[in-house]
Design a protein around this nucleic acid. Structure first.
Lengths: 229, 229
DNA sequence: CAAAAAAGAGAGCACTGCTCTTGCCCCGGA
DNA sequence: TCCGGGGCAAGAGCAGTGCTCTCTTTTTTG
């Protein structure tokens, strides 16, 4: 059974690979990225540590795999939240996506920290992560673009010294958008992660208590900022 | 010379302590928090690693000292930038403080990551860090409060479900401010760090190129958001 | 069916934070 | 001025880490 034999090997490899990722994700969720230990993963799987290197050439490669999965998981959460309100107005959809990002972050704090917190020292994310990372951004761009084509965006200020940069930016990201909206969108995107990060990393401790309505209002004001009606 | 003798001991202790912190800060700046090694610090100082524990009971305590210093350094940078434009209007002062935070962050990326990035795993900041951490926040509060007493703040929306939280918040932070301004201020504070963090941690890579004007405009829009005239 | 490739085991290297014991030396009270 | 005690450094050692190398077993392939 040559073909099944080959299939068996390949299947076993995939199984072990996902088992490693699953155990690694479990440790990541429990302890955080810097406490993720290859040896501990191997131990838990009944393997010797050196055997792990047949599947991931280094700890960083394992981390990269987890990062991509985390981006995908966040992207999927945002997309499905968006799909659930796809019939509503741009502002509702915007707030829904923001709220989904926050919810995902609260549910997966260490994974969120891995992708949007300070980079793990010595580690620099390879280009592989880019497509997965872009999903939430594309979603937000889509909402603003829909609004632009439909009910229209409110006019936004754009200082003269920012105009070239804003034009370059929309040329890359969304050529149909006005430059001011593109710049505002990118800023709002960053600010969304500021809000989420502050809540997640404890900066709101003893400052903001009732965080859900606080966040929803802030997200709605971000919608103002990008000109959503 | 009893007193000088005791003084000599104490002085030596202070000198070694600051030497440790200096070397640690050097390594922090060069390699990041997670690569900060007690043994390497000791080696560089010509000490054996165990000797270091006479000065800092653990690696976390050394980190805490560095965190407090970083907060202070950032706070001082923000305060001196504010002092330089103290005569100008609230909006200029607001943007100046934001720009100072960004500048400090770009100059001290690893220290910024230490205090505003994802928390170092296993480490939880003790209460000791709170006063130092509050300096920038107090500065921003002061600007908004001055504007409120002077030229006046523009009216801001405040949804009904956020009102109790906003009132509690200003009661703690700045009793003379309108609740909506307090809530907007806290949100803007978080968003400022979103902007800085995204730039610092590379999320703007190939998205925003000319970052200085981009940031200044975003900071000015944050001023709008808190109602500064 | 034999050769080659893949996978796991185990030892080992250089590093980490941290503890414990030993001994020195300087400071302060008698 | 002497002497005891305490602050201090040193060194060995423990348990852990990422990673490499070699050896053996198992499976796939020509």
């Amino acid at each position: 059974m040559t073909s099944t034999a080959r299939g068996a090997r390949a299947r076993a490899r995939i199984e072990v690979t996902t088992a490693i990722k699953e155990e690694a994700r479990r440790q990541l969720a429990a302890e955080g990225a810097a406490r993720l230990s290859l040896r501990a993963v191997a131990r838990e799987l009944g393997l010797v540590s050196s055997a792990l290197y047949r599947y991931f050439p280094s700890r960083d490669d394992l981390l990269t795999a987890l990062i991509i999965d985390a981006y995908d998981s966040l992207g999927e959460a945002a997309e499905s939240a968006h799909a659930a309100v796809a019939q509503e107005g741009p502002r509702q959809r915007w707030v829904a996506v923001c709220a989904a990002v926050r919810r995902w972050a609260l549910a997966h704090p260490h994974e969120y920290a891995l992708i949007y917190g300070s980079p793990v020292p010595g580690y620099h994310a390879p280009q592989t992560t880019v497509p997965a990372a872009a999903r939430v951004g594309l979603l937000l761009i889509g909402i603003v673009r829909d609004a632009h084509r439909g009910p229209g965006l409110t006019d936004l200020p754009l200082p003269a010294d920012l105009r070239p940069e804003a034009e370059r930016l929309v040329a890359d990201l969304a050529p149909d958008l006005p430059p001011a909206a593109g710049a505002a969108l990118v800023a709002a995107w960053a600010q969304l992660y500021g809000l989420v990060g502050f809540e997640l990393f404890g900066q709101f401790h003893r400052v903001v208590e009732d965080r859900e309505p606080f966040f929803r209002h802030a997200a709605s004001r971000l919608a103002d900022q990008v000109g959503l009606p």
